[in-house]
Computed example of a mutant assay.
Amino acid sequence: MKSLCFLNSNRVWGGGEKWHHDVVLRFKEAGYPVLAITNHNSDLLRRLSQKELVLYHPRISTLSFLNPVKILTIARLLRQHRVQAIFLNSASDLKLGGIAAKIAGVPQIIYRRGIALPVKDRWLNRWLFQRVLTRIITNSQETRRLLLEQSSVPIPADKIRVIYNGIDLSAWDQQPFSPVYHKIPREVVLGAAGRLSAEKGHTAVLELTRILKERGICCKTLIAGIGPLAEQLQQKVRNLGIEQEVVFLGFVNQIKNFMESIDIFVLPSLYEGAANVILEAMASRKPVAAFDVSSNPELIQHGQTGFLAQSGNMQELAAHVNNLAQHPELQIRFGQQARIRIEEYFTMERVISELAVLI
C-alpha cells in the first residue's frame, strides 16, 4: 500500500484537527503506512500520541516555510518514509509541506481547504496552486465555488474534488456519555459550540436567548468553546439580562456529552467551510437552526432536518427556534431525519473510500 503523510500544525483542536485525527487512524487501520506531522505541544499531537503511530512534531509557526532547515528536514523525512501522498491542512501547512513535498518528489500533494474564503493573489500562492498541488479537497460545493470564482489566483477546476466531512457512526454510538447539564421540566435547552471568535457569531445566540425569554419561553443556552471573545460575550450576557439563561461551558473534551444535553443545536456562524459540529448534532438526532450561509444548506435540509434563516435575520431565526421549542414532536421528527441523512451521505466510510481514489 502507498505510504501516506498528514501535516497539520494547528495547536488547538478544531474541525480540521478532528478530520486529520480520524482519517489518519482509519488509513492506519486499513493497513496503510502513515506518517503524521503535528506541531510541538498541540492538541492533535496529544491525541495521536495515544496511538501506535509514526509521529514527527517540530516547532512550527506561520513563517516556518521561510526556514530552509525545517523544509529540508521534512523533505528528508518524506523521502525516508517513501511518502507517495501528503495531505496538508492549513495555508501555512501548504507552504511548508508543499515546498518540502515538491523537493522530496512526492507524487501526490493534496491540500484540504476547509475554510470558505478565496485565495489571495500572492506569487507563492500562484506557484503552489498551479505548479505544486496535484489535488485540492474542499468540504463543500460552496468552498469549491469560492475558490474558482472569487480567488485572485487562477485555480484549475479539475484539481478540485468535493469530499464532505463524515462521522464514524459506530464509534459515535458506542461512545459513553455523561450530560453536561440536566434540564428542568418544560425547559428547552439550546446549544452552540465553536471557537469564541467573531466569525462564529455567538452574539446572535445571545440575542436569540433574549428574544425567547421575552416571548415567555423557558430556555437554557449552553455555549461550548473557548476563544478571544469570551469576556466580551460574558459582558454581553450581563447587558442583555440573561445571566440565568446562559451557561458558558468552556472547552468540552467530549462533544457527545454536550449534544446529549441539548434539545436544539444553533449555529450562528457568519461563514463556514462545512461545520463538522452540524454533523455531530445530526448524528445525535438533534434539529439544527442556522443562518443560510456558506455550506449550511448543503448539510441542513430546511423544513426536514432543521431550519435556515436569512443571514443576520434574528426575528426569522427566533421564529424557527420558537417553533421547535413549542413542538417537541417536531424536534423528534427533525432529529430522526437528520440521523438518516448522516447515515446516507456523511459517514467516515464514505470519506475514506473517496480519499482512497485520490491516492
Rank of each mutant, 00 (worst) to 15 (best):
N296T: 06
N296F: 07
N296V: 10
N296D: 03
P297Q: 09
P297W: 06
E298A: 05
E298R: 03
I300M: 03
I300C: 04
I300F: 05
Q301A: 12
Q301F: 02
Q301R: 13
Q301N: 02
Q301H: 03
Q301T: 11
Q301M: 10
H302N: 15
H302L: 07
H302V: 05
H302P: 13
G303T: 05
G303H: 06
Q304N: 12
Q304E: 14
Q304L: 13
Q304G: 03
T305P: 07
G306M: 11
G306N: 11
G306P: 13
F307I: 08
F307E: 11
F307C: 13
F307S: 12
L308I: 04
L308K: 10
L308T: 06
A309W: 04
A309K: 04
A309T: 08
Q310L: 08
S311V: 02
S311K: 15
S311Q: 15
G312W: 10
G312T: 11
M314D: 02
M314H: 12
M314L: 14
Q315T: 12
Q315M: 12
E316C: 01
E316L: 05
L317Y: 02
L317T: 01
L317D: 01
L317R: 01
L317E: 01
A318Y: 07
A318K: 05
A319F: 04
A319W: 04
H320L: 09
H320G: 05
H320S: 12
V321I: 14
V321F: 05
V321M: 03
V321H: 06
N322G: 11
N322L: 14
N323Y: 14
N323D: 15
N323W: 13
L324C: 10
L324S: 09
L324V: 08
A325N: 08
Q326S: 15
Q326I: 02
Q326C: 09
H327C: 01
H327E: 11
H327Q: 14
H327W: 00
H327L: 00
H327A: 03
P328F: 01
P328E: 08
P328I: 03
E329M: 06
L330T: 14
L330G: 04
Q331N: 12
Q331I: 11
Q331S: 00
I332M: 00
I332D: 01
I332G: 00
